[in-house]
């Protein structure tokens, strides 16, 4: 049930202000995005049109804490096909960014492990200029599945290492100071 008193009429503007979220208000609710979505095909409960509709209505808390937000496979099919050029894949990303900020500020809890992985990944790029696969994957496993997860992943890791596909240490580029400045500039 929708409680009008709990709706946040500013939510759509908040999303539209986020890079990638600009076109959300163009959606005319045609369902084109949902038809053909590969995730909807395997999970009828996943409905990108509905996420957008709720966001436009201002169901802020419900949208930000909805596990669905993390089920988009970012395949860009809906982005390609939307008659209104909503750029749903990126709108979904914009909503994710807001959800992550709210979680960082302690206002909501995110159950999905994806943001943790993304953040570990981005941190490794921030310090090295390249992503540090062994370190990020190891830390992610440890944080989500405990030491058992790391051990479970070990055979695959060993196989990759044996094939010369995984390096134990991170590779650092020379221009890490430039990378830091990019982070600073876009975070302003």
């Amino acid at each position: 049930m929708i409680k009008t008193s709990e709706l946040d009429p500013n939510f759509k503007y908040e999303i539209a202000n986020e890079p990638g979220g600009e076109n959300i208000k163009r959606c005319f609710n045609c369902t084109g995005c949902t038809v053909g979505c590969p995730v909807t095909e395997i999970d009828k409960g996943y409905n990108p049109r509905k996420i957008l509709r709720k966001a436009l209505l201002g169901m802020r808390n419900e949208v930000l804490t909805d596990e669905s937000l993390w089920l988009c496979a970012s395949c860009y099919l809906c982005y390609e096909r939307c008659p209104q050029d909503v750029k749903i894949t990126e709108v979904m990303g914009a909503i994710r960014a807001i959800a992550q900020r709210e979680a960082k500020a302690g206002k909501i809890k995110l159950a999905n492990p994806k943001p943790l992985f993304d953040n570990l990944f981005i941190d490794s790029v921030k310090s090295n200029g390249k992503w540090y696969e062994a370190g990020v994957s190891g830390m992610f496993m440890l944080k989500t599945k405990g030491i058992g997860g790391v051990i479970g992943y070990a055979p695959m890791g060993m196989e990759l290492f044996r094939k010369g596909k995984l390096s134990i240490l991170p590779h650092k580029i020379k221009g890490t100071d430039q990378i830091k400045r990019i982070f600073e500039e876009v975070e302003k």
């Binding site: 970012s74 979904m92 994710r96 960014a97 993304d118 981005i122 790029v125 200029g129």
Partner: peptide, 14 residues
Amino acid sequence: NCCGALEAIFDKEL
């Protein structure tokens, strides 16, 4: 350097 891959793709400016 790394392009940010799919992990930073929605941190669009980054």
